[in-house]
């Protein structure tokens, strides 16, 4: 049974909905404290966590120093669960480089800046601290229209392995989780865009069916916990067999 300590702070991005919210709730359920980060304050207030409202992609250059401020304000941080991200379905032939860079700004560079901030010994809680990045099975399975999104998640997974190698000497573990299609507020919108049979069709592509946020939160909490103390640099696919 995974248990967190009340004095252990976990920073969760994308905490207002979907996978991020499920992870934040699960950490609190398991006894830990959460600094919940998102753009929408009203959704954060219901969580029972400390709330930090910020648009990560608008402040990428400041995020590392922002982490230091957070640690001064709330205490050192034991773990990061980085779930904020955006998916855009754009075929290669319609790719707009300016928009493609914007997607990378949030999906990759904001996470890189947060990781940089976290590796500061004034920010993290020392040995046993851990980072979990929410990637996607699109990083390992080609899908039409997801060229840039897949690349942003693949970049994250590659960075995870290099960060793990670099931070192991400090006892900091770094892993990513690669979800398949999960029903969230974001994917509900796609459902309304793609017609009534969309979810049914997606469900058929997954041997264990499409996922729920709660099916990711347990894995993320495991990776954040001491139970995963010998796991680092791994990209762990949690997708109901969707990438088989």
């Amino acid at each position: 049974m995974i248990k967190f300590q009340k004095e252990d702070n976990y920073l969760v991005t994308g905490a207002s909905s979907g996978i991020g919210r499920a992870i934040a709730s699960k950490i609190i359920e398991l006894g830990g404290s959460v600094i919940a980060v998102a753009r929408r304050e009203e959704k954060l207030n219901e969580l029972g966590a400390v709330s930090e409202v910020i648009d990560l992609s608008a402040k990428v250059d400041d995020l590392s120093s922002w982490m230091l401020d957070l640690a001064k304000k709330h205490g050192k941080i034991k773990g990061l669960a980085l779930s904020a991200g955006v998916q855009e379905t754009v075929p290669l032939r319609a790719t707009n480089l300016s928009k493609a860079r914007q997607l990378f700004e949030l999906n990759y560079f904001a996470n890189l800046a947060l990781a940089k901030g976290f590796c500061d010994k004034r920010v993290n809680a020392g040995r046993g601290s851990s980072m979990v990045f929410i990637s996607s099975n699109a990083a390992i399975s080609g899908m039409p229209g997801l060229v840039n999104y897949s690349a942003s998640k693949g970049a994250l997974d590659a960075a995870v392995r290099a960060m793990a190698a670099e931070l192991a000497r400090d006892g900091i573990r770094v892993n990513s989780v690669l979800p398949g299609f999960v029903r969230t507020e974001m994917t509900e919108k796609w459902g309304s865009m793609n017609g009534p049979t969309y979810f049914e069709e997606m469900d058929k592509k997954y041997p264990l069916g499409i996922g729920r946020p709660e099916q990711l939160s347990g894995v993320a909490c495991f990776l954040l916990s001491d139970s995963a103390g010998w796991i680092t640099g791994q990209n762990i696919v949690v997708d109901g067999g969707g990438s088989l």
């Binding site: 379905t89 754009v90 075929p91 032939r93 319609a94 707009n96 928009k99 039409p144 229209g145 309304s192 865009m193 793609n194 017609g195």
Partner: peptide, 22 residues
């Protein structure tokens, strides 16, 4: 279908309007 998807992106980029595949 890929052309249709491309058109969705094109309209989004040109006119900032989002249409559905339907």
């Amino acid at each position: 279908s890929l052309a249709a998807l491309t058109l969705l992106s094109l309209y989004d980029q040109l006119f900032s309007v989002t249409f559905t595949m339907a």
